[in-house]
Simulated scan of single mutants.
Amino acid sequence: MQRKKLLIVGGGNLCLQVLQILAPRNQFDFHVASRNLEQATRLCNLVSLGALQLNVSVRIQAWEMDLTESAIERNAETLSRIKPDVILNCASLQSWRVITQLPKATFDALDQAQLGPWLPMHLAPAYALMRAVKQSCPKSLVVNAAFPDAVNAVLYKVGMAPDVGVGNIANLIPATRCAIARLARCEPSRVCVKLIGQHFFSHYVPRHGLPQQANFNLSYWIDGRERTDEFNADVIFRSVADNFRRLGGVDGQYLTAMSVISVLENLFADEEVHVHAPGPHGLPGGYPVKVGMGQVLLGLPYGVRREEAIQVNEAGQRQDGIQSIMADGTVMFGSAQMNVMEQMLGYFVAGMKVQDAAECANELGQKYQAFAHNISQQGVSHVPQQRILTRQFG
């Protein structure tokens, strides 16, 4: 079978980790697109040279791609030249992990805003990319790594949803299997899990165990026999946080990279493979899915209706700071989470239309940079008292 063309958009750390795993296997025709062509070229050369250490000769081509409003036509032309079978979007205007570099007290305070209010940073480039995709290569499969729980759901409303996401709920599965195996006194390989949950849940559990209001659905089997509810869910997820605690931040992206591999390598498999992924076909939150034969399907456990799974994830979405996603793609943010952004950054957006994502991202980015600069200059680690209402929706 002819190799599929894989285009990775965004030349950051996740791109590097994915290529470091995939390149030595040499199963794809590799391409990397980034707004910084020099950096992308050096990244591609690093990975190809590393693969040659294993005597694997792999070619990775670098391209320039700027995911802004003014570059959509140029991006469409680039995509037409590459003709990718699969596109992995890793592009964000500000990575989720940037705020982890703040002093701990400041980070802990700002982290109360959750990820929802930061949506513009991930939505804006994805929106620009999908418009170019729809124009030039609409049959390409798109896998989104940038806050797919929400980005995919928003883009679905305007007919531009990626096919599936990666990370988040998928990152929680290995430790959940290990926790159940520990309780059942068996090997994790004998445990099969199906877990439904939004980013808030998959982010909270590895750090603290079950949240006080936990929105999830868990089913599991041992040696093919269903054992759901045999062990207390609180005990399972406490074990995830305690017995299977792990590195986070940049190092923790290794789990996301492996989630990417599980999807990419099986998308065109001859048989369906069961994995977990957020945002399949624009659904909010994370689900068990089946990938293979060029398609992505829901793989919900028996007895769990699609509507029920969506409701679980929408409840988690509200905890993550996104109150609702309207029929036209307009996002309404949670007031409690946005109030944290207002108090600390002087940034407040009650609601956001899809087409305003780039403008909101620009404002949010400027406000955060000013805030972070002030912290570094003054050593401030408390919540600023200034409250500035910068934008109202309407």
Rank of each mutant, 00 (worst) to 15 (best):
Q17H: 03
R25F: 05
N26W: 11
N26E: 04
H31Q: 08
A33D: 08
A33W: 03
T41H: 05
L46E: 14
L46W: 11
G50Q: 14
V58Y: 06
D66N: 13
T68A: 13
S80N: 14
S80W: 08
S80P: 04
I82S: 06
L88V: 09
N89T: 07
T100H: 08
T100G: 07
F107C: 10
D108W: 02
Q112F: 02
P117C: 01
P120C: 05
M121R: 02
S136N: 09
P138T: 09
K139M: 06
F147Q: 00
L155E: 10
Y156I: 05
M160L: 15
I169R: 00
I169T: 02
N171V: 01
R190N: 08
V191E: 02
L210D: 13
P211F: 00
Q212G: 05
Y220L: 13
N232K: 14
A233I: 12
F237T: 13
R238K: 13
D242N: 15
R246T: 12
L247Q: 14
G249S: 12
Q253M: 13
S259I: 07
V260T: 02
E272T: 09
V275L: 14
H276L: 10
G279M: 06
P280F: 06
G282M: 00
G299M: 09
R306P: 00
A309D: 05
G321C: 07
I325L: 01
I325Y: 03
A327C: 01
S335T: 11
S335W: 10
E342I: 03
Y347Q: 02
V354Q: 08
C360I: 03
N362G: 07
G379V: 03
H382I: 09
Q386N: 14
L389C: 13
Q392P: 00
